[in-house]
C-alpha cells in the first residue's frame, strides 16, 4: 500500500526580504515598534533591507537620521527607556565604534543600575563581514567585542529563516539585542514561513549531524562550513556542523554534547582569531567534562590578525574559505593536527 506524503511547498525569501518582513510584521502588531537609521527611508537602506517600509508606515515610524551614530543610538536608548521598541539600523557594523558609549555604557547597564526598574528593549541591526571589496573600515566582524559586555545579547543569523525569527525574538526581548547581519547573505534565498514566528535567542542549530569532528561556526562561516562538510562527506569524513546563531548567551551545552560524541573540535569564525569567539568556545570545552573526550587538539580557524585588505585576493586570504575548512578538518581527523 502506498501512502502519499505531501510536502508543503514553502515560500522562499532572500535574507534581506526576511528581515523586512519581520520588521513589517512587528510594526503591524505593535505600534511602539519603529525603526531608524541612515538612508533607510525613501532610499530603502544601503543594502535594500527596509525597502518600501517608509511608504507603508510613514516617516514617523521609519526615520531617516542624520549621519551621527552616537546621536541615533542615544535617541534609540532614550526611546526604549520610555517604553518604545526601537530597531536601529547601522549602515555598516564598523560604524558601531561611534555608538559604543550609548550601547556599552548606557543600554547594557541601565537595567542593572536602576535595580530592574527600567529596561532598554532596543534592537540594533548592522551588517558585518568581508567579501564585498569594501576594505578595512567597512568589512570587519566586531561581534566578539560586544559579546564581552554583560547586559548585551549578540545574535548572528546565517539563514533567511533565522534572520526573520531571531529579529522578531529580539524585538520581543525586554533587553538590548545586537544583530550582526552579513553583507554576503542579504541576497541568499531560503524557505521562510509567512507567519510571525520566533527563533529562540541563545540556542544553537545543528545544521548537519556527524560523528568524526564538530565544526562550530557563526554567520557566513556556518554556510561555508556546511558546504565544506558535504565535500568532507565525499571523502568519508562525517562532520557535525553547529551554527551558534547567538554568541552571547552562548549555547555551550550544544557544543559540549557534540564534542562528547565526535572527540574533535574546530571553531570557524570571521572575526580576527585572537581573543575571539573561537577562544571562548575552545575554553568552554577545555573547562568542561567534555575535555576528557578530546582525542586531538582544538583548532581555531579565524580571521587573520590584519586590517582587512582591499585587494580582493588578499581579502579572501584574510578570512576562512571553504577550501581551508575542508583541509583543516581533514588533517584534524586523519592526522590529529592542523
Amino acid at each position: 500500500m502506498f501512502t502519499l506524503k505531501v510536502f508543503p511547498i514553502m515560500r522562499e525569501l532572500t535574507y534581506a526580504e526576511a528581515i523586512r518582513e519581520a520588521l513589517s510584521q512587528a510594526m503591524e502588531a505593535d505600534p511602539t515598534v519603529f525603526t531608524l537609521g541612515e538612508d533607510i527611508g525613501v532610499y530603502g537602506g544601503a543594502f535594500g533591507v527596509t525597502g518600501d517600509l517608509v511608504h507603508r508606515f510613514g516617516t514617523e515610524r521609519v526615520i531617516d537620521t542624520p549621519i551621527s551614530e552616537l546621536g541615533m543610538a542615544g535617541a534609540a536608548v532614550g526611546a526604549a527607556l520610555t517604553g518604545m521598541k526601537p530597531v536601529l539600523e547601522l549602515q555598516f557594523s564598523d560604524f558601531v565604534t561611534l555608538a559604543t558609549e550609548q550601547i556599552v555604557n548606557q543600554a547594557a547597564k541601565i537595567r542593572f543600575m536602576f535595580g530592574g526598574k527600567a529596561s532598554v528593549p532596543l534592537v540594533i541591526r548592522m551588517p558585518g563581514g568581508s567579501g564585498t571589496g569594501a576594505a578595512a573600515q567597512h568589512s570587519q566582524s566586531l561581534e566578539a567585542w560586544f559579546g564581552h559586555i554583560p547586559g548585551l545579547k549578540v545574535v548572528q543569523p546565517s539563514t533567511p529563516h533565522d534572520a526573520k525569527g531571531l529579529l522578531l525574538a529580539a524585538i520581543d526581548d525586554p533587553n538590548p539585542v545586537l544583530i550582526f547581519e552579513h553583507k554576503l547573505l542579504y541576497r541568499m534565498k531560503g524557505p521562510v514561513p509567512e507567519e510571525a514566528y520566533r527563533e529562540p535567542i541563545g540556542k544553537a542549530a545543528i545544521r548537519r549531524e556527524g560523528r568524526d569532528v564538530t565544526i562550530v561556526a557563526t554567520s557566513m562561516m556556518a554556510i561555508r562550513s556546511l558546504a565544506a562538510a558535504e565535500r568532507l562527506a565525499a571523502e568519508g569524513i562525517d562532520a557535525e556542523v553547529i551554527d551558534l546563531r547567538t554568541i552571547r548567551p552562548m549555547d555551550t551545552e550544544a557544543v559540549l554534547k557534540s564534542v562528547r560524541k565526535t572527540s574533535r573540535l574546530m571553531v570557524v569564525y570571521e572575526g580576527v582569531k585572537t581573543l575571539g569567539v573561537g577562544a571562548e568556545v575552545s575554553a568552554a570545552v577545555a573547562e568542561s567534562d567534555a575535555f576528557d573526550f578530546l582525542d586531538a587538539p582544538i583548532v581555531r580557524l579565524g580571521g587573520k590578525d590584519v586590517p582587512l585588505p582591499y585587494n580582493p585576493i588578499l581579502e579572501k586570504a584574510a578570512v576562512p574559505q571553504e577550501d581551508e575548512i575542508v583541509n583543516a578538518a581533514r588533517r584534524l581527523v586523519r592526522e590529529g593536527r592542523v
Partner: peptide, 30 residues
C-alpha cells in the same frame, strides 16, 4: 596522550607507557 586516551587508560587500568602512539610526535590516541 590525548585526554580521551588518558581517560580510557585510567578506566581500564592500562599502562600508557606500554603503548606506542600513532599520532603526531608519537602521541597516543584512543
Amino acid at each position: 596522550a590525548t585526554p580521551l586516551a588518558r581517560r580510557f587508560a585510567r578506566e581500564r587500568g592500562i599502562d600508557l607507557k606500554s603503548l606506542s602512539g600513532s599520532g603526531p610526535f608519537g602521541r597516543i590516541e584512543a
